[in-house]
Design a protein around this nucleic acid. Sequence first.
DNA 1: CTCCTGACTGCGG
DNA 2: CCCGCAGCCAGGA
Length: 108
Amino acid sequence: MVVREIPYGRVLAYGQVAARAGLPGRARLVARVLATTTDPDLPWHRVVGSGGRLALSADAPAGALQRRRLAAEGLEIRGRRVVQMVTDDGRGLDAALWGPGAGAPRTR
DNA sequence: CTCCTGACTGCGG
DNA sequence: CCCGCAGCCAGGA
């Protein structure tokens, strides 16, 4: 459910998903779930490693797919990581919930 | 039961 | 940025 709640164009780290699910420290469990799920509606591509690092290699089919999807959602990908382009224009509320700290890989 | 392997992490060096 | 290391833990062999 936590994964399903990740907004379009936003990403969350495995550990954060686990934490939000009430299972702090269980990042690996989240990874395992995503790796084995068959649910076609689960936005698994919005889950990345800490710091915005992409866990899947670009060569792997899933890795390529994830990059394409994230790019399609307007996220910039540099090297092995996702660059959160938040450009807040005075929307502090959204930021409060899924804001800057929410996993958003430092940007710049 | 033990051993090995991850779509993980934070902390060094 | 890369590397290793120690925790972590569900599954499979």
